[in-house]
């Protein structure tokens, strides 16, 4: 039996045949046998054992709980910020969308800060240890715990000083961040039971992309739309105005994923509740949302 007959039998089973094809099948015993064989497959597939009632009720209860926890405005259909329509609005949307890379830059600064802070703390510990040893040899009455406490204080001071020196904006923003994280904790209750939700605060500030339209807007605005002078640009894979260290860090954090054909990393976002990195395949003119850790594609859309 050939593939054409199987295709015809399958189409017949789905009622997607012409009158001639129908007659052909119904007069050919071999075709009819094939129809029955495929019908058996369909019956088997559809014969799914229903879950336990307790499982079903647990699922429904969890879903309704998630509904109950939605903010009232969101539950009743009030949309989050959407891309406005119209030419003038498109420019505004572009400017708004290109703010998306900001969290990426912030993350870079935070990561750099962490690295520098760690190095500074290590240096302070070594220095404090040396001082303690010298003092210990000079005056045996000093205890090592005092030296440790002093080192800890110095460490703490160095941590804060380094953090502030490295990124004054972060220091100023700290109270705001704390407020934001508190807010995230409240909203993260929506995510109860969702396995792949990021920890609270991880996605704070990231753009929420609800569908492919949002994805296209996010990507296209970042690469082509007019932007305000003080708005950071999309992050090119080649680095742009970033230092070499920052570029390599960014590349390490958001891989290009050649398998997906990404030429340009736009930045991180949240696509239908999943944290993703948005990239652009310039050759095929596609915006692609993907999971950075595994280079797994989450969604794609053709750019306008």
């Amino acid at each position: 039996m050939n593939d054409d007959l199987t295709l015809l039998a399958s189409s017949y089973l789905d009622g997607d045949v012409t009158a001639d094809e129908r007659a052909l099948v119904e007069t050919d015993p071999e075709a009819l046998a094939e129809v029955e064989r495929l019908r058996s497959v369909r019956a088997l597939l559809g014969d799914v054992e229903p879950p336990l009632i307790s499982v079903r009720e647990a699922h429904l209860t969890a879903a309704l709980d998630a509904w109950d926890r939605l903010p009232a405005a969101e539950r009743t259909g009030a949309r989050r910020d959407r891309t406005p329509l119209g030419i003038d609005a498109a420019a505004a949307a572009g400017a708004a969308s290109v703010t998306a890379p900001t969290p990426l830059n912030k993350r870079r600064r935070r990561t750099s800060t962490r690295w520098l802070t760690g190095a500074a703390a290590a240096m302070v510990l070594v220095l404090a240890g040396g001082v303690a040893l010298q003092m210990g040899s000079a005056d045996d009455s000093d205890s090592s715990s005092d030296a440790g406490a002093g080192a800890g204080a110095a460490d703490s001071e160095a941590f804060n000083a380094t953090d502030r020196a490295d990124n004054p904006a972060d220091a100023q923003q700290a109270p705001a961040d704390a407020t934001g994280e508190a807010g995230d904790e409240a909203t993260s209750q929506l995510d109860t039971g969702v396995a792949d939700q990021p920890p609270p605060g991880e996605n704070s500030g990231l753009d929420q992309l609800d569908d492919q339209t949002d994805l296209a807007d996010f990507a296209s605005a970042a690469v082509g739309a007019p932007r305000a002078p003080d708005v950071p640009t999309a992050t090119s894979a080649t680095g742009g105005d970033l230092t070499e260290a920052e570029t390599s860090l960014a590349d390490a954090e958001f891989p290009l994923c050649p398998r997906l054909g990404i030429d340009l990393v736009v930045g991180p976002a949240v696509y239908v509740d999943e944290p993703v990195v948005v990239g652009i395949d310039e050759g095929r003119n596609l915006a692609i949302a993907y999971e950075a850790a595994t280079c797994t594609e989450v969604a794609r859309v053709r750019l306008p």
Binding site: L70, V194, D210, D273
Partner: peptide
């Protein structure tokens, strides 16, 4: 649940997928 069962395969994975799907449906319904 049947779709989850046939795509995800095992009962446990299907149950997890089904739960996930219901929550996503609810959250996206607006």
């Amino acid at each position: 649940h049947a779709v989850c069962r046939r795509v995800a395969g095992s009962t446990k994975d299907a149950d997890d997928a089904c739960q996930e799907a219901l929550i996503k449906i609810v959250r996206s319904l607006p």
